[in-house]
Nucleic acid binder design. Structure first.
Lengths: 339, 339
DNA sequence: ATGAAAGCGCTAACAA
DNA sequence: TTGTTAGCGCTTTCAT
C-alpha cells in the first residue's frame, strides 16, 4: 500500500509537503503541488485512516449494535439510511455489530465492539430485552452510547408510539367511525408482559384517546394462544360480529388471522371495515395499499446520531431521552368514511 | 483513554509485559500477570484497534457497499446476518457504506470507503445498475472486492435464479399443474431492459423448464404500464380467464394488481389458483402463508465473505464467479395439488 | 515555503 | 522472564 513516505521519496519532497498538498493545507509552491498531485493520482495514494485515528485520538466512526431474534437481527432499511447518512455528513463511518446467537444469554461474552477501542460511540438498537451485562459494560467503559427504540429516562431516542396510536384513533374518528377496535390476534394477553414497550404504548395511546373522546374502546386480543387455531378463529369471529361490531380496526398484529376472520364474516375492506396498520411489515391488504400509521425511521436514526455526536464531543453525562413526534398517518386504500 | 503505557507505568512493568498478558502471549511471571490483569480490569483498558491496524498493515474489517434506490438502500436482514457472522468468526468488523443520493449519477464523487484506506476488502451489493466509475476505481486501487447479486464472469457471488425458477416450475408440475403462468403485472415488458439480471434469469428458468417438459409457457406481463390501471386490469382479467386459464401462477411482481384480477374473477387461492412467490417482500396472501421460492441469503453472504477473504489473503486476481444453488421451495398455503 | 523531530498505541525482534 | 529498540502512517510544532 502506498504511503505518504512513498510519494514523498518519489517526488523528492518531505512527507509534510505531500500531506499538505493532499489536504489543501499550508502553503506549497505551485510546481511541487502539481508534481505531488500527479504522483498521488498515479500511484493511487489514499490516506490511512488507522494512522489518522491514532494521531487524533478519534476513530470518526460509530458502532451500531443490533439485537438478534431467532438468529436474525432487525434493522429497517430507512433507519439504517438515516443513521448512515447522518454519520456520513460528518465524515464518520458506521460499524455494524450484533451478538452471535449463543451469546444472548451468556453474560460473559461481549461484542468485539466493546472489547476493543474501535469507535467513538455506540448506537444500540435492541428491539428485545436488553442484556444487563451489556448495560454495565457500557457504563464501565464510559463509552458514549445512545439507545434507539428503548424507553429509559436517559440516553434514548424513540418515536412517540403513544401519540402515533392516538393519531390513528383520531384519524378513524374523523372519518366518522365510533366503534373502533384495536386488534392483536398474533399475541396472547398472557404474553404481553415481556413484549417491547412500544406495543404497550400503542395500546395505551388507543385506550386513552378513546376514553378522552367518550368512546368505549375494545381491544381484541385472545387471553392466550394455547388454544387451537380454529378456537381462536371462532372466538375472534364473535368479537367482529354482531350489531355493534367495530366499523374500524387498528391493527397491532395477527394479520393472517384477522384476514381469515373478515373473510369468514364476508366483511370487505374498506367497504365494511376500515383498517389502519402500524407500518412495519407488509404493504398491502389484498389488492389495497395499506393505510398506515408509520414512523419516520430515517429521522429516528439521524436524531440518534445527533445525540451521540453531542455526547462524543461534549460531556458524557446522561442526557434526557427524546420522544419524537415522528409518526404520521399515511393514507392508503384500507379506510373510508363511515356512511 | 487507557493505553498499554498507562497500565505499564502503573504496574511498574514494561509495555511488552502488559501486551503479553493481555493476549496470553509469551511467558510472564505469575505475580506480574495477576497484577497486570487486575489493573487492566480496574482501569478499563481495551486494545486500540487503530494501532494494531497500523502495525499489522491490516484493518481486519470489510466494507459493505450498498446501492440506493429512491434514497433507500436495500439490505435484507438475513444477508446482513450472513455477512456479519462470517466476518465475526474471523474477528473482522463490518463497515457499512452507501452513496448519498446525488452521487449516483455523478461520476466524480466516490464513497469514502474508497477514498481512504479503512478496510481490507469490499463487498458490493448493487441491486441496480453499477456505476462504471465505481468499477474503475476499485480496479485501480486493486482493492479486493466481491460483488453480491451481480452477474459478471468474475468476482461475483449470486444465487442461481434460473434454477430457482426451474424449481418453482417443477414444484407446480409435480402438484399436477400443467397450465402454469408466470405473472409480472408490476413492470411493463418495455421496462425490462434495465432491470436487474435476476428478473431475466427467472423468466428464462421458467420458460426453459416449461419447454423441456413439453408445456407451453405463458408470461403474463403488460406491454407497457402507460395505460390506465383499469385498462391494465381488464387486459389481465382476460389473461387469467377462459377455459384454458392457468391453474397455477409463479409471481414475479405486481401482487396488488394480481390480487385485484383474481378477486374480479372470483378465483380463490389456493383452491382455484396455486401460487408460488419469489420470497422477498411480503409474507401472506390474505389469510394464507405464502408458498415461496426463496434464496438462503445468509448463505449468500457467508459465501461472499469466504471469497473476499480468499482474495485478501491470497492473490488478488479475478476469481470465477460463484452461482450458488441456494434457492428452495418453502411450502406454504398458496398451492395445492390439481384435482 | 519547506523540512526535521517527536510521538500517537502497538508489537516483532532482539538483548539482557 | 523481562525490557529495549525500532517502526508502522500520520500530523503538530518548531526550526530553517
Amino acid at each position: 500500500m502506498v504511503s505518504l513516505r512513498d510519494i514523498a521519496v518519489e517526488a523528492g519532497v518531505s512527507e509534510m509537503t505531500v500531506s499538505n498538498v493532499v489536504h489543501n493545507r499550508g502553503r506549497v509552491g505551485e510546481a511541487k503541488r502539481r508534481k505531488v498531485m500527479e504522483l498521488v493520482r498515479n500511484m493511487g495514494y489514499r490516506p490511512n485512516r488507522a494512522a489518522r485515528s491514532i494521531r487524533y485520538q478519534r476513530f470518526d466512526a460509530a458502532g451500531l449494535l443490533l439485537s438478534t431474534d431467532l438468529g436474525r437481527s432487525y434493522l429497517p432499511n430507512p433507519l439504517l439510511s438515516g443513521i448512515h447518512d447522518s454519520l456520513a455528513a460528518r465524515s464518520m463511518h458506521l460499524v455494524l455489530s450484533r451478538l452471535p446467537d449463543e451469546q444472548l444469554s451468556s453474560p460473559l461474552i461481549v461484542p468485539s465492539l466493546l472489547e476493543e477501542l474501535t469507535v467513538d460511540g455506540l448506537l444500540i438498537n435492541y428491539t428485545h430485552a436488553i442484556p444487563k451485562p451489556l448495560i454495565e459494560m457500557i457504563q464501565k467503559h464510559s463509552l458514549p452510547a445512545v439507545w434507539i427504540n428503548a424507553n429509559h429516562r436517559y440516553d434514548c431516542v424513540r418515536p412517540d408510539d403513544f401519540g402515533l396510536a392516538a393519531k390513528a384513533t383520531k384519524y378513524l374518528v374523523e372519518l366518522g367511525h365510533r366503534r373502533i377496535a384495536l386488534a392483536d390476534l398474533g399475541v396472547g394477553r398472557d404474553q404481553m408482559e415481556g413484549m417491547h414497550y412500544s406495543r404497550h404504548e400503542r395500546v395505551e395511546g388507543y385506550r386513552q384517546t378513546m376514553a378522552e373522546l367518550g368512546l368505549s374502546g375494545r381491544i381484541i386480543q385472545p387471553e392466550t394462544l394455547r388454544q387451537t387455531s380454529a378456537e381462536l378463529l371462532a372466538w375472534a369471529v364473535g368479537q367482529f360480529s354482531g350489531l355493534d361490531r367495530p366499523t374500524a380496526t387498528i391493527m397491532q398484529g395477527g394479520y393472517r388471522e384477522t384476514h381469515a376472520v373478515l373473510e369468514e364474516l364476508k366483511l370487505k375492506v374498506p367497504d365494511d371495515m376500515s383498517m389502519v396498520f402500524f407500518g412495519e411489515t407488509q404493504k398491502n391488504w389484498g389488492r389495497h395499499h395499506l393505510t398506515m400509521a408509520s414512523v419516520d425511521e430515517a429521522k429516528l436514526g439521524s436524531e440518534a446520531v445527533d445525540m451521540l455526536i453531542g455526547k462524543i464531543n461534549g460531556p458524557r453525562d446522561p442526557v434526557p431521552s427524546l420522544v419524537l413526534p415522528i409518526g404520521h398517518i399515511v393514507p392508503g386504500e384500507t379506510c373510508r368514511p363511515l356512511s
